[in-house]
Amino acid sequence: MRIGILSFAHLHAEAYLGALQTMSDVEVIGLADENVERGRHFAGQFGVRQFADYNALLSERPDAVIITSENARHLPLVRMAADAGAAILCEKPLATTLDDARAIVEVCHAAGVSLMTAFPMRFSTPAVEIKKLIDGGGLGHIYGCNATNQGSLPEFHQSEHLPFLKRDWFTDPLLAGGGAVADHVVHLADLLRWYLASEISEVYAVTNQILHKGKVQVETGGLIMLSFANGTFASIDCSWSKPAYYPTWGGLALELVAEKGLATMDAYRQVMTVYSDRVGRPQYAYWGSDANAGMLRDFIAAVNDKRAPAVSGEDGLRAVEVVLAAYESARTGQPVSLG
């Protein structure tokens, strides 16, 4: 399996490349990045080839590519990769507009290439335990879900302060498609669609810009309520509410209140707290399984076995619909119907 990486705009590219390098059946042919300096940095860090541009990488006919460009710049790369016949793992959110998200799904379908949306939470081992519990009937009807996918301001994420590593597009309304809502609603929206095997029928959202006020032009706080066709409701807190000195980047957790009781899941609870003079503040050291690796293994197996990946492009499209409905609801002050 020969895989290339298109763009390092999204910081998840680093995590994906790191995970791919641990897999014996994968050959990373290299990366291409429109930011040549950034591409050179990561090619050096991971010891992989840097291609001059995306066409140069695709002309090597990789079996698959990972697209980790800015949210609004997925579609052109998807077109190029689909033309080259490569299977595609596309970073979430799939797109910043419905037209782009639909086009991404259609382009891949027309070219007959496999498209997976990068929703690694479906491969988080704690999250999978909850799926098994639900499918086994252990909870009965789920009344509601109280969920959080909070984080720190994305600009706090970088570990090195090189100017070309500043991923400030995360707070650019056009490139990211918005702020905290675009960044953090899709994971839980997708996870809950999977858990409940039911579609989202209505979305309500409120947002504000009190956190990091004046630093960014997008919403930094958000609460979203999803109503599912089966009657379950779920609230999602997507706020960038974790301070820069918080012990970790953020987290994803949920409580399910159901006919048969309560289940809680904290996907990033498998940590120890480290107090180091070198850092000067408590930090969480995560020791749980790598959900990204699980997602990549499924992507690769799906390509090898010529089957559909566990998460589809349509799943990505559904999540984009939720994000756009949330923005509309925040504008109008009333819930927005889907479908």
């Binding site: 009344y143 504000n208 706080g221 609460l223 609230s235 509410s241 209140v257 309560l262």
Partner: peptide
């Protein structure tokens, strides 16, 4: 401009009772 998420229920198995509070502000949490 602040927003609040308030969860309540009489649906837990007895004798469970849970309360939780979180307040995020522009200068702390």
């Amino acid at each position: 401009g602040a927003i609040s998420n308030v969860e309540g229920g009489w649906a837990y198995p007895p004798p469970m009772f849970r309360t939780a509070l979180e307040i995020a502000g522009s200068a702390g949490l």
